[in-house]
Amino acid sequence: MLNFNKNICYAVFGNPINHSKSPKIHNFFFKKYNFNEKYIRICASKQFFLKEILNFFENGGKGANITLPFKEKVFSICTVLTKRAQISGSINTLKKNNIGIIGDNTDGIGLLTDLKYKNLISKNDNILILGAGGAARGIIYPLLKFGCNIYITNRTIQKAKILSKEFLKFGYIKYLKLNQLHKNKFQIIINATSAGISDHSSLVIPSNIFNQKTICYDMFYGNTDTNFMKLCKNLGSKKVYNGIGMLVNQAAHSFFLWTDIFPKINDVFNFLKK
């Protein structure tokens, strides 16, 4: 089991995790708001993940973020779930309190906050989500609540079908097979598959759904353009974004859950640029 210093009270758990910028963001927040605490990355064991999370909280951990591939696997250790976590079926934020462990999901509200901040989203927009896993689950409800129409496609279409059925009561949502995509017009295309960080895409996307006005948003990020971003640019899209804005905004909502302080995100954007 891992051992922790007493001032390491926050961490992000994932596998892989070396690419994560969450420590830079949260340590910036902690320093700015005068908390003498640290936030680290933890590459969790896929076999003993839940034991490692519980060990973290038993040794002074106060809060944690959860990323791939664990977002749908932490429900069993939560005492309380927020409405966002319950609806999404996915957890990216944990908080320890005197009752137990609170499970929340700040991914969707983080994405929506970033899309609004960048003036990229309007009510009634048609949004295509690529992927039907935990990353997709976390963002659907806020987008439906905002008033957008959601379309989901996935290499295994049955997963997209199940997901669309789960969220149908919250707004307009439909699953599409890959060979049906060209019949529709999308204002925003969001990559919620790990193709954003892997060497190849598991989806073959029709090129004719892209044009210069298509907004392409990869939930993942790297130091250079992701494979999805390169594809979108090659197919003519002029508005192509990675997930840094989403990461910063979901981090701000996580920080608020932990500390009751909502940080100024412009400050951290400027910090990351430097």
Rank of each mutant, 00 (worst) to 15 (best):
S202E: 12
S164A: 15
Y117A: 13
C78G: 05
L203V: 04
N149Q: 07
K123Q: 14
S194Y: 13
T156W: 01
L181W: 14
L144W: 10
I197G: 13
G147A: 06
Y151F: 09
L168V: 09
A132I: 01
K159Y: 04
Q180P: 15
A192E: 08
D104M: 11
D125A: 00
K96W: 15
D107K: 08
L181A: 04
L120M: 11
S201R: 02
I209N: 07
S207V: 13
N97C: 02
T193A: 01
L181H: 06
V80N: 13
Y117F: 11
I209F: 14
K185V: 02
G89N: 04
T214S: 12
A192R: 02
D199P: 00
L81Q: 04
I209P: 07
R84C: 09
R137T: 09
T193F: 12
F146R: 05
K174P: 02
K174G: 03
I87F: 02
Y175L: 03
N191I: 00
K116H: 03
L203P: 02
I129Q: 06
K213L: 15
L163P: 03
G131A: 10
G134S: 10
G138Y: 03
S122V: 08
E166H: 09
N179W: 11
I121V: 15
N154H: 07
Y151P: 00
G131Y: 04
G134I: 06
I188R: 08
K96G: 13
T93D: 08
K161G: 04
K83N: 12
I209Q: 06
G108S: 05
K185I: 12
K165R: 11
A132L: 06
K213C: 05
H200W: 07
G138F: 00
N184K: 10
L111E: 11
